[in-house]
Simulated assay, not measured.
Amino acid sequence: MTPLPIALGGTELIAWRLDQAVHAATWNSGEGAYRVGGRWNSKGVRAVYCSIDPATAILEVAVHKGFRALDAVPHTLTAAVISDASAIHVVDPASVPNPNWLRPGIPSAGQQAFGNDLLMKHRVVAMPSAVSSYSWNLIFVASVAAGTYALRLQETFALDTRLHPPAGR
């Protein structure tokens, strides 16, 4: 059962992440972001991207891979407890130098440098999602955030089959 968010009476802040099952054991390594960079980090920075709800975590992966891959390739949903909410730096969207950084698109060098700086200064960064602007992502570098989070659960992800119907439906 999905734990209730704090706002609805839950007692823990959960960071959600969706990975291919073959990478589940290294969910917090930041390897993918290290190799190619991401929206809020340049290549060479081991940023770990999570969301504050599982639906946003799914959309964040689907926007890159598509629902076909989520339907046909085994994935694992990971939940990690953020033990110290005061460790989270919430980015005010108005403080982002370029509002286009919060919209879908290819990240700029300036955007990645801005994110790198945040990730080195703060244990966990909360940033609005570009996929769903009313949702939030949690981003951290494991070595910087050590002791701030703990693995809660990992389970096999199963895509709702209506999101990848047969052709012609």
Rank of each mutant, 00 (worst) to 15 (best):
V125E: 00
S83N: 14
M127E: 07
F140K: 01
S29Y: 08
L4Y: 10
K121G: 01
I139K: 02
W40L: 01
T78C: 06
D92I: 00
V45D: 02
N98S: 12
V73F: 09
M1Q: 09
A87C: 09
S86L: 07
A146N: 04
S51C: 09
S51M: 08
P3N: 07
E60T: 03
G37M: 07
L119G: 08
V91F: 03
T161I: 15
S143N: 07
A94T: 14
A80P: 10
G44P: 05
W40T: 01
K121M: 11
P3D: 05
P107E: 05
A130W: 11
M1W: 12
L8C: 08
I139R: 01
E155C: 13
A57H: 13
A47R: 06
P5A: 00
A7D: 02
S133M: 11
Q154D: 03
H122V: 01
Y34R: 13
L77Q: 06
A72D: 15
G10A: 06
V125H: 00
G37I: 04
S108E: 02
F140W: 10
V91N: 04
V73D: 12
A94N: 09
Q112M: 03
V96D: 03
G44C: 02
G44M: 08
L159N: 07
D117Q: 10
L77R: 09
H23W: 14
T11R: 09
D19W: 11
N28K: 05
A72G: 12
E60W: 02
D53G: 10
A109V: 10
A142H: 08
H122R: 01
A85V: 14
A113D: 12
P97W: 10
Y34L: 11
P97H: 12
A142G: 02
G110I: 02
W136R: 13
L159P: 08
Q20T: 08
K121Y: 05
A33P: 11
T2E: 15
V36Q: 14
L59P: 02
R35Q: 12
M1F: 14
V22M: 10
F67C: 12
P165Q: 11
T156Y: 05
T56R: 03
A24S: 08
N137A: 07
V48A: 03
H23G: 04
S133L: 14
L59R: 11
Q111F: 04
A62G: 06
C50D: 01
V45T: 12
P54H: 04
T2W: 11
I88A: 00
Q154S: 06
S83L: 05
G110E: 13
Q154I: 01
E60M: 03
A158N: 12
V96T: 10
R35H: 13
G38C: 04
A62W: 11
T2H: 12
H164L: 12
S95Q: 10
S42V: 00
Y149M: 07
N116F: 05
S86Q: 06
A113K: 14
L151P: 00
G30I: 03
Y149D: 00
T156D: 15
T78K: 06
A130P: 01
A24P: 00
K65L: 15
R162T: 13
